[in-house]
């Protein structure tokens, strides 16, 4: 069997539709969860809340050293046994979000560490309440430092969204597999799926590199 352009073009709209509706949505929501939760983890560890800080560190180490796929299966197949049934997409966003939050926590921490000590001292001297110190002084500087690193993890997460196919989310890879199963042609669907990923991730990585250059220039 040879490559058929007409078949490749015919299936493209279907692939793109599922790519937009599931792959991209899961990436955006997963990144949002990871960015917020990662910041929460980092702050818990930074202000050293007793017990909670140690528990967070242990949790982060564990999640980072175990496969995403098994974490997703745990959420999808084991939680219903404990009386908690979640939709596949919800599990996907939650799984990706928590997994990457554990990576982002470290990124935030290095960003917070990089804020000069004088900034903290100035906040104390100005009698700023802790909340204002974090919101108006520390975090704006910390987040700008780590924006490129966070972007990298967002791209890494994007490339791991096909894992969601295995918990029945009808994203790009799942759709390609379905088309292959229906037509007994796997070559075009999988090739097109890979190319769609390349077409989306490569320009984003280039943009990010430029953003990093710009932020570094300040």
């Amino acid at each position: 069997m040879n490559w058929s352009w007409s078949f490749a073009v015919e299936i493209l709209p279907d692939l793109l539709e599922h790519f937009l509706k599931y792959t991209l949505v899961a990436t955006v929501l997963g990144t949002a969860v990871a960015a917020v939760l990662g910041l929460v983890f980092a702050m818990i560890r930074f202000v050293r809340i007793p017990v909670l800080a140690q528990a967070t560190t242990a949790f982060i180490e564990f999640v980072r050293s175990t496969p995403l796929l098994i974490q997703l299966f745990f959420l999808f197949y084991a939680l219903p046994g404990m009386g908690l049934t979640l939709s596949p997409m919800f599990v996907g966003v939650l799984g990706l979000g928590v997994h990457y939050a554990c990576y982002m926590a470290d990124v935030y921490r290095s960003g917070i560490d990089a804020v000069p000590k004088g900034q903290w001292e100035a906040s104390v001297a100005l009698q700023l309440p802790p909340r204002t110190t974090w919101q108006r002084v520390v975090l704006p500087q910390a987040v700008r430092n780590v924006l490129p690193a966070l972007g990298n993890y967002a791209i890494a997460m994007f490339k791991e969204t096909p894992f969601l196919a295995f918990i029945t989310v009808p994203e790009l890879l799942h759709t390609a597999r379905d088309i292959g199963g229906d037509t007994f042609r796997y070559l075009e669907p999988f090739t097109m799926a890979g190319l769609v990923f390349l077409a989306a991730s490569y320009p984003t990585a280039l943009l990010l590199r430029r953003l990093e250059g710009r932020l570094a220039a300040y």
């Binding site: 040879n2 796997y186 890979g194 390349l198």
Partner: peptide
């Protein structure tokens, strides 16, 4: 380098196993 980094790993894996036999 850019090709193998840019096209997601699960897709590459299934491609090698399911799509390559087609050619």
């Amino acid at each position: 380098i850019e090709f193998f980094r840019g096209t997601s790993l699960p897709i590459q894996l299934l491609w090698f196993y399911f799509a390559l036999p087609m050619v």
